[in-house]
Design a protein around this nucleic acid. Structure first.
Lengths: 202, 202
DNA sequence: AAGATAATGCACATGATGTTGATTAGTGAC
DNA sequence: GTCACTAATCAACATCATGTGCATTATCTT
């Protein structure tokens, strides 16, 4: 009975709205966007919007969560063994390459959401996913000695660093390949930023 | 002749408004705050607000820039020689300690502005200041070999990492001392996150 | 083809916005 | 202490976005 996914009109309308959101956020930033703007751009009646979303914040959150969900799912597929071995060879992590590829495919949305006009809450969600993933993978490694700093700080450091580089890559028009980016990240994380910078060669 | 700084009423009113901003952002986030809220909390007439600021965005920007300016100024005082020598001994950087102390003094404002209810643009401004500073200091070091990755990515990595840790520290109620925090950051930056985590001990 | 329901169009009350003009009260300079 | 200046107040106004309701039309599913 009218399962909310089967009716074409619904998915059509939702797609229109979400596309409009990306475009309009690019122009004016989330807070500059009104429901009227959205429905005008999506070419639907304003009332229709409220049939699907409570307000624009509801729309934002649902759009974000969709992306988060996708990221979670293909991160889960990452093979722990591959990761450990890649680490030891100082190779780019295959699952990080995949991540960059995914971001590249959704570049427009990701750039807006992660950019200065985006939502800080989205950053948190992404970092949370990264952190959970890293902690799990860390557990699986056998060559482990106690961390030298509080694990919480370490996680903040690495997740923020990675997200920051992703952001910058998007802003600059994604000039490097996903593979290059993954390698860059691996270098800095495994050799350390200072070493990579060229200072402190013992 | 009425130099806009001399009149007590003006600075009083501005202080009220800015204090109200911090409090209200803590409650509802920037976008939840209305001019009416601000003037009610500040106990001034709504019209008075528009005598000083164009709108709430203008208020936000001016408040941010004030902080940025202060940060810039005391970062400038950092002694390059101290920095180089501290690096070599793997000690916390004195100027980073000072930075944490400053943040601690303005904790409330900083936490709100850097938190999930804050403004992503503020992050950018802070990172920009950090980046400029780091590039300058990097120039002054003699023990330098070419960087292994694009300098732009390196800067994104380090500035985002540092800001991320600061954010986390604020969220957690600043349990560690500025000195501890500076040391933690130095460890991760100089030894590398992976080494600090306990993996990849060659 | 028929029943279900998504989408439309219009109207309405509400609340925030930014501006204006007249008035009151506090301030700085002399 | 006085006086000119101007910050702050108060009330009113037009404008706009919001969220909701309801009758009607168009489209989908089966």
């Amino acid at each position: 009975m009218g399962n909310s996914k089967t009716d074409r009109r619904i998915i059509r309308t939702k797609r229109f709205i979400r596309d409009a959101l990306t475009e309009l956020m690019e122009e004016k930033g989330f807070e500059g966007v009104t429901v009227k703007d959205l429905t005008k751009k999506a070419d639907i009646n304003r009332g229709t919007f409220y049939l699907h979303y409570q307000d624009k914040y509801d729309l934002l959150e649902k759009s974000e969560n969709e992306v988060i969900q996708e990221v979670k799912e293909f991160i889960k597929k990452a093979n722990p063994n591959e990761i450990v071995s890649a680490n030891l060879k100082e190779q780019p992590l295959p699952f990080i390459i995949t991540l960059f590829e995914y971001i590249q495919e959704n570049a427009r949305f990701m750039q807006v959401m992660l950019g200065p006009k985006g939502n800080p809450g989205f950053h948190l969600k992404i970092k949370e996913v990264m952190k959970t993933n890293m902690l799990e993978k860390l557990e699986l490694m056998d060559n482990k000695t106690p961390p030298l700093v509080p694990l919480e700080h370490l996680m903040s450091y690495v997740t923020s660093a990675h997200l920051g580089v992703i952001q910058h890559w998007l802003e600059q028009g994604m000039e490097q390949s996903p593979r290059e980016m993954a390698l860059t990240l691996a270098s800095m994380t495994f050799l350390g930023p200072a070493y990579v910078a060229g200072i402190k060669r013992t």
